[in-house]
């Protein structure tokens, strides 16, 4: 082999690429996602659900039925049974003569709101602790890893029920309890990724530039764990929505008369033989939303990084 050196300085510019702005990994992922029909369908459903939640008051306005208004004449039989879907109450009424359509719309606010807020809490706590443990190692890692093990070994629903019954039901406590238990899986995933990333040369490069640990963690390492975090997050939202609905179903949801899906399904239990619409529509809303999030999550996983296909599913 021969190396020809001392040639004329090579400052040749590479042939210009068609785009000036590079297609980053996120954009590529987005392109892959856009090609995924199932995921895009799910995304449309989710966006619609979000619109329903945001514009819940419009439903109340158009129907003229506030979410908590009881219609004892038009909305209930003399024996107090719900009325089936009709021109006044498109999806029928519940056991207090309230409009199920309007309540589902308002319920979407709670389901999605709790889903998003509790998931955000989970993500923030899980990512920060996972980053710290994986990056700093040592005692910090030891403590956080133990904590993760402990939290993962706790039977979540039982403890959640116990905590909520002690503190009394409410939105904040529901979010806190869910966040308190879901962060561990997230932290474990992030920690694993960071353990591997911290040995990469670009981390060393940043350090040689004089970057602090904090900067390296959040500027250099964090963007590289976002892919699994995003996938896990999309899959976590439906789990959180179900947990919130379960707590509500068990009477640990929002105090009456707030409308939320789990609570509506719980109220409908006693009427399933006589009022199918009462149990069906809130259940459908819950089912469609969670399925949409799950399918989107699968799509995002495939789009973002096929390698993390074996990622544990949120429990």
């Amino acid at each position: 082999m021969t190396i020809r050196v001392r040639e004329a300085p090579d400052r040749r510019v590479e042939p210009p690429a068609p785009d000036v702005v590079g297609r980053g990994p996120w954009e590529l992922a987005w392109r892959r996602l856009r090609a995924d029909k199932v995921a895009m369908g799910s995304l449309v459903v989710i966006v619609l659900m979000v619109l329903v939640a945001v514009f819940a008051p419009v439903f109340a306005h158009v129907t003229g039925h506030p979410p908590n208004m009881q219609y004892h004449r038009e909305g209930l039989t003399p024996d107090g049974l719900p009325r089936p879907p009709n021109s006044t109450f498109v999806l029928g009424t519940d056991d207090l003569g309230r409009d199920i359509l309007v309540r589902i719309a308002y319920g979407a606010r709670i389901s999605l709101g709790v889903g998003v807020l509790a998931t955000m809490l989970t993500v923030v706590v899980g990512v920060v602790l996972g980053l710290l443990a994986g990056f700093l190692r040592g005692v910090v890692d030891l403590v956080i890893a133990r904590l993760i093990d402990v939290v993962l070994s706790i039977p979540f629903l039982l403890v959640a029920i116990a905590l909520v019954s002690v503190s009394g039901p409410g939105l904040t406590i529901t979010i806190l309890v869910i966040g308190m238990f879901s962060w561990a899986s997230m932290a474990r995933i992030v920690r694993g990724q960071v353990l591997f990333l911290r040995e990469r040369e670009f981390v060393e490069a940043a350090r040689s530039l004089g970057a602090s640990d904090l900067r390296i963690m959040f500027v250099d390492v964090l963007p590289n764990v976002l892919a699994p975090v995003i996938v896990y997050t999309t899959l976590l939202i439906p789990v959180v929505i179900i947990v919130q609905a379960t707590l509500s179903f068990l009477g640990l949801g929002l105090p009456a008369p707030a409308a939320d899906w789990g609570g509506m399904i719980s109220e409908a239990q006693n009427y399933y033989t006589v009022a199918w619409w009462f149990v069906l529509f809130p259940s459908l809303a819950l089912l469609i939303t969670t399925i949409a999030f799950n399918l989107l999550g699968d799509g995002v996983r495939d789009a973002v990084d096929p390698r993390i296909g074996r990622l544990v599913r949120p429990r």
Binding site: G22, A205, P223
Partner: peptide, 26 residues
């Protein structure tokens, strides 16, 4: 305390793939 010296002394790494953060723009 090391940071002022970091400015003065830089490293070019062997692996042009591993040493550039794939999630950051050039």
């Amino acid at each position: 305390r090391l940071r002022p010296f970091r400015r003065e002394m830089q490293v070019i790494f062997q692996d042009p793939y591993g040493s550039l953060n794939p999630r950051r723009r050039v």
